[in-house]
């Protein structure tokens, strides 16, 4: 035991030396490559935002918003402040819109369209219709 105590200083010295040596030498070993999946995610979010803006540009959507007294341009401006998660949520809904078709498709499409518009206005804090939507703090 006493021999170990005598060794305390040299051991501590050795530990300090090795650890600091490791830190200095290993700095460049941590390559900061940006991996493909990261760019993929980023890209996906940009596309989703673009899709929402395109959706808000559609004439029937603008008409809906205006009927309810909302300014479509203000809505578009607010999309920029949405979180990535909210963007993804809205984009998924837009993807679910039926692509034209018969009379039933048109009615269904209109209903889904109104639902998405309301969902967006809810998230943007214009309306308060769906209890499941968390509101943006203004």
């Amino acid at each position: 035991m006493s021999s170990l105590r005598r060794m305390k200083k040299p051991i501590a010295g050795l530990v300090i030396f090795t650890l600091s040596a490791f830190t200095i030498i290993s700095v460049p070993a941590h390559a900061v490559m940006i991996n493909t999946a990261e760019i993929f995610k980023q890209n996906q979010q940009d596309l989703a935002r673009e899709r929402i803006n395109m959706f808000l540009d559609r004439s029937e959507v603008r008409k809906n918003l205006e009927t309810w007294g909302e300014n479509p341009n203000e809505a578009k401006a607010r999309v920029d402040s949405l979180t990535d998660q909210e963007i993804a949520e809205i984009a998924t809904r837009i993807d679910q819109l039926p692509a034209g078709g018969g009379a039933l498709g048109t009615i269904l499409g209109l209903a889904v369209l109104v639902f998405i518009v309301l969902l967006i206005t809810d998230i943007l804090g214009f309306t308060d219709i769906f209890p499941f939507v968390k509101k943006v703090d203004k």
């Binding site: 460049p28 900061v32 980023q42």
Partner: peptide
């Protein structure tokens, strides 16, 4: 861009080295 903090880290590491 959105990953600017990573670019900064890369730059600092190369500078340090």
């Amino acid at each position: 861009g959105p990953l600017a903090n990573i670019y900064q880290k890369t730059l600092e590491e190369i500078q340090t080295w």
